[in-house]
């Protein structure tokens, strides 16, 4: 029996944005690539620097969730879905309107993550090229949310842009992109034969070149699920931090036993997601480290969003942490 199920509109919005605009939140290519202006990275080369727009969209996720919650007048419980539906019915999704409230300093901070990552890799001797405005989001969320047929149509478009770079290696900032390029794309596309690496792996390979950290207070690593369990990258993070002389504290749940930041349920179940993230932050803060480090955009966003106001512990991406020593 063929049964068509209608899912909460927020999922449809994300899907539609990816398919239509090449980005889950329908951000413009010019906005996503604005961080790269000063670097003049070539469009072609051996090693493709791939952001997928993921760090860049972080400041807008909360805005999306908040807007949807605000629009709905009814119970907060299902506000997200109803809100999205109202938005769709009224005006479609207007990225400009919805995202107007995002603070410039947040935008700047997350845009700068991609910049910092590129600079670190250059300092370690890697020659990077970048797709700029042409770069498309990997489609990891299409895979994650079950839109596999859409992914089959979408992946060739992404692959085409990547192909134009002439690169042999793709460097992913987000473990979600790395996962989908490494494990899913080769199965969908016959000729997707790239070496897929994460930022963390590349830094690890050249970690002897890293300057000592200017920060000498203890740090704690929040292993991202994808990085630790799918991509098998956990010791590398510790090696990198040791090599810059950072003091590492370990939480109860780490490596393969890491605990999820709650990020994946942020769109459908923002309250539960927030609670889960808050518990993880508390667990990490118990180590009394000064800074919580992670290497995944969604972990970064989820943990930061759930931290108690007034907490003294910093939350940073590994990229931001390493850049302090490099710049």
């Amino acid at each position: 029996m063929a049964v068509e199920m209608k899912l909460p509109p927020v999922l449809e919005i994300i899907r539609g944005n990816i398919v239509k605009h090449g980005n889950p939140l329908a951000l413009k290519g010019s906005e996503i690539s604005s961080w790269a202006k000063a670097l003049n990275l070539p469009a072609r080369g051996e090693m493709l620097f791939y952001t997928g727009g993921e760090y860049q969209l972080l400041p807008f996720i909360d805005s999306l969730v908040k807007t949807m919650t605000y629009v709905d007048q009814g119970s907060k419980g299902f506000s997200l879905m109803m809100g999205a539906r109202n938005l769709l019915n009224k005006a479609g999704i207007s990225a400009e309107k919805m995202y107007a409230s995002v603070l410039a300093k947040d935008k700047d901070r997350y845009n700068a993550v991609s910049y910092k990552a590129a600079v670190i890799l250059q300092k370690l001797g890697y020659d990077l090229c970048y797709g700029g405005e042409q770069e498309l989001y990997s489609g990891a969320l299409l895979y994650e949310l079950g839109y596999w047929q859409d992914l089959q149509e979408y992946a060739p478009r992404v692959a085409n842009v990547i192909k134009q770079s002439g690169a042999k290696t793709i460097v992913c900032l987000s473990p979600h992109a790395a996962e989908v390029f490494k494990f899913i794309y080769p199965k969908i596309l016959g000729d997707f034969k790239y070496e897929v690496k994460t930022f963390v792996e590349l830094v690890w390979e050249q970690r002897h070149k890293l300057p000592a950290a200017s920060f000498n207070k203890p740090v704690v690593i929040h292993d991202s699920c994808r990085l630790a369990r799918e991509l098998n990258i956990e010791q590398e993070l510790r090696d990198i931090l040791s090599s810059v002389g950072a003091e590492i504290r370990e939480p109860e749940c780490k490596g393969k036993w890491t605990t999820c930041c709650g990020g994946p349920s942020k769109l459908l179940f923002p309250e539960v997601s927030h609670t889960i993230a808050g518990r993880r932050v508390a667990e990490l803060e118990q180590t009394e480290a000064e800074v919580i480090l992670t290497a995944c955009p969604y972990c970064l966003s989820a943990l930061e969003g759930a931290q108690e106001k007034g907490s003294q512990t910093g939350i940073e991406d590994l990229i931001e942490f390493l850049y302090r020593g490099v710049k």
Binding site: M1, M5, F269, T275
Partner: peptide, 23 residues
């Protein structure tokens, strides 16, 4: 083709889940 709108399932369930997470 049979169509099922999962909106209500999701709504009731989400309310319940949110309540539980604050219990």
């Amino acid at each position: 083709m049979m169509k099922i709108d999962l909106q209500k399932e999701f709504n009731d369930y989400t309310q319940n889940l949110n309540k539980a997470s604050k219990d």
